[in-house]
């Protein structure tokens, strides 16, 4: 992408009209059925998250001592937990909280990582060297252990999960941004922007960064899956959201506490929800990556 931008004829090419770009996008999607499946899952999840109050049959936090730990039935499709809460409603509301956490974590790591990578590549020299060695150290930790350490340091809560999950992904973004920024920095449009008197900040953030964002966004789709898994893991071991929250990992923990009683429905359905959500983002991300990488088509 950055390579074609450097070719002179690219500067004359007009951007095709929206209808044309839409048709192109649709054609690319049709050639990639797994990406379509991923897209459908992701869209469905987002809709469920947005309309959770309308879709959920019960109030997820309504305790009903009459129906404690009931197996799935026509009244409660996914059964009830040990407080008589409806598991289906909890799973539906969980989509809201889990997607929110994953989105926040991905955006946070994307912004921080992109800025670090862009500045590092643009500045070069000693700055670049020090930044990249710092990223090496951050990546030397086994992922989940590092997340546990951070969550331990700041104490449980939604913010903790977001921060712990995002710090893990900052080095990845920084490296990716750096690798696309290095060739872009030497491109003609960068030279043009500098020669008309653009400041470093202006050249970097107005001209270079926007041209390097496509691989970053594609990578984010894959990061989404990781973020959901890691956030759920942290909540499962009690370092994430509070145990009563409508969050998938916390719900599985609730099921684990009752494991020997054989109440499989409390943990099975939230686990399936995680698996389907992560699957959706992975399929979509893989598909997008295939579309971007001409070698893989």
């Amino acid at each position: 992408m950055s390579a074609t931008a450097a070719q002179p004829e690219a500067t004359y090419a007009l951007r095709p009209p929206f209808s044309e770009r839409w048709r192109q996008g649709m054609r690319a999607l049709r050639a990639n059925p797994t990406a379509v499946v991923g897209l459908v899952i992701v869209v469905a999840l987002v809709l469920i998250a947005i309309f959770a109050p309308v879709i959920a049959p019960y109030d997820p936090q309504k305790l009903d001592m009459e129906v404690v730990s009931q197996p799935p039935s026509s009244a409660h499709w996914f059964g009830t937990d040990q407080f008589g809460r409806d598991v289906l409603s909890l799973v539906i509301w969980g989509a809201r909280l889990d997607l929110f956490i994953a989105l926040s974590a991905v955006i946070l790591s994307m912004v921080v990582g992109t800025v670090i990578g862009a500045v590092s590549a643009y500045a070069g020299g000693m700055t670049d060297e020090i930044t990249m060695r710092t990223m090496d150290i951050l990546q030397a930790f086994p992922r989940f252990i590092f997340a546990m350490g951070i969550a331990f340091a700041i104490g449980p809560g939604i913010g903790t999960v977001v921060i712990a999950t995002s710090v893990l992904n900052i080095p990845g973004y920084a490296r990716l941004m750096r690798s696309v920024m290095l060739p872009a920095r030497k491109s003609q449009y960068a030279a043009a922007a500098t020669s008309v008197g653009g400041s470093h900040t202006n050249v970097l953030f107005r001209h270079l960064v926007p041209n390097c964002l496509v691989p970053i966004f594609v990578n984010s789709t894959l990061q989404f899956g990781w973020a959901i898994l890691e956030a759920a893991g942290l909540s499962f071991i009690g370092l994430g959201v509070e145990s009563s929250a409508a969050e998938w990992g916390a719900l599985i923990q609730l099921g684990f506490q009752d494991f020997n009683a054989g109440h499989w429905w409390i943990y099975t359905f939230p686990g399936l929800a995680i698996a389907v959500a992560v699957l959706g983002f992975n399929l979509l991300g893989d598909g997008l990556q295939d579309m971007l990488d001409p070698r893989r088509q």
Partner: peptide, 21 residues
Amino acid sequence: VAGVSAPIFWIAMVLLSIFYG
């Protein structure tokens, strides 16, 4: 696909409930 999508602690619980439970 399944191995990277499902949370590890959940897979453990499902296997445990089948082969032990």
